[in-house]
Simulated scan of single mutants.
Amino acid sequence: MTNSAPSSSSIFGTNLVAMVTPMQPDGTIDRSGFDALLVHLLSTGCDGVVVGGTTGEAPTLTSHEMSELITQARVHSNHALRVIAGVGTNDTAAGTDMARSAAAAGADALLISAPHYSRPTQAGIAAHIVDIAGAGGLPVMVYDVPARTGIAIEQATLIELSRHPSIRAVKDAKGDLYEAMTVMASTELAYYCGVDELALPYLCCGATGLVSVTGNAVADRYAEMIEAVRTGDLDRANAVQRALLPLTDAVMRTTQGAIMAKAALVRIGVLSGATVRRPLLESSTTDLRRLDAALCATGIDQESRSVDIPVRLA
């Protein structure tokens, strides 16, 4: 008997990008910039986006803004991108409301992290995720990011969560490859690398795909890497990874990924501004010099990648 359930790659995609949220100089959402970014991501091989995740500055988005962005991504990408809504919170009741709103706004799936700050037990983490998953009625990607939540989702908890019919995948920002391989071997959970620096190792260890920050600017490079691994061309995949190292370092290890990804998108002509909301601050001159050097070292011609981008995707 064959399994008729849709594959995780068809639900979530393989080359996902944690989208930044473009903003006007006054801090309001830049709707045309959001559309421009969608055009850019589609044209560079992205097949799924996380809206309102860490890179999208979720802590400073209102519920209304979040719903509008999900709908905009759904409608203006003409259903060509899977839209995964970030619903990370430390309040389970609020998380269930967020999940329902995301589903109503047109999200394809949910990204649910462990509750931050509260530091519940592993049983509490599992209950939190299951409650939110049940409320949304959508496929779920569990987000394991202890550097931000303050608590890791343990291997046994991930295996327990895998038994829930809606929980289909893990975005792993923990960076423990051995644990990831163990969970993949013990469950049907699809793994997505959430650590840009480790994209190639995760793919080689069996990850279904990536959820990248640097991909805001260079999703095409990640598409090439994924294809190279899929076809067994590891020399090519390694060459792509090595070429990306300077830019990955500049985006992920300078200040914050959201800050540097926006700066990179301005540098390559996709966005007109790199405004972020407090408590984040825009890139300093020193950081921008480092980013420019990385773009050059990575072989990205800033001028040639700048294009006229329509305000709407018709």
Rank of each mutant, 00 (worst) to 15 (best):
G232Q: 12
A264T: 12
D249P: 06
A250V: 07
P246V: 08
M260E: 08
G269D: 01
S283Y: 07
G299W: 03
G257W: 08
V266D: 01
T285Q: 13
A293T: 03
R230Y: 03
N238V: 08
A293M: 00
N238Y: 13
A243P: 02
R290G: 08
A243Y: 10
M260K: 08
L247C: 11
I259D: 00
R267M: 04
P279L: 00
V276C: 01
A263C: 07
D249V: 14
V270K: 05
G299P: 02
E282C: 07
V251L: 10
M252T: 12
D292L: 02
R230D: 09
L247W: 12
L234P: 10
T248I: 15
L295V: 01
Q241M: 10
I300N: 07
C296K: 11
D292A: 03
S283W: 08
L247F: 11
K262H: 05
A264V: 11
R278E: 03
T255Y: 02
L247Y: 12
L244E: 08
T248G: 11
T298G: 00
D292C: 02
L280W: 02
E282T: 13
T285N: 14
L288T: 09
K262L: 07
I300Q: 06
M260H: 08
T231P: 09
R236S: 15
K262E: 05
G299K: 02
T285Y: 01
D235T: 11
G257C: 08
L244I: 04
P246D: 15
E282Q: 12
D235I: 02
C296T: 14
M252V: 13
L265E: 05
T231C: 15
T286R: 11
P246E: 11
L288P: 01
D233A: 15
T254Q: 10
T255D: 03
D235F: 03
L244T: 04
R278Q: 11
V270F: 02
A237C: 08
D292P: 01
T286V: 15
L291F: 04
A263Q: 13
Q256Y: 12
V270P: 03
A274I: 01
G299C: 07
L247K: 09
L291Y: 00
M252H: 07
A294I: 01
G257V: 08
A274D: 14
R236F: 09
T275Q: 13
V240P: 12
R236I: 04
E282V: 10
L244F: 09
D292W: 00
A294R: 06
L280S: 03
D235C: 03
Q241K: 05
A239C: 07
R290Y: 11
M260G: 10
R278W: 09
G257Q: 07
L234A: 09
G273W: 00
T254R: 12
V251G: 04
A297H: 04
R230P: 02
R290L: 13
L291G: 02
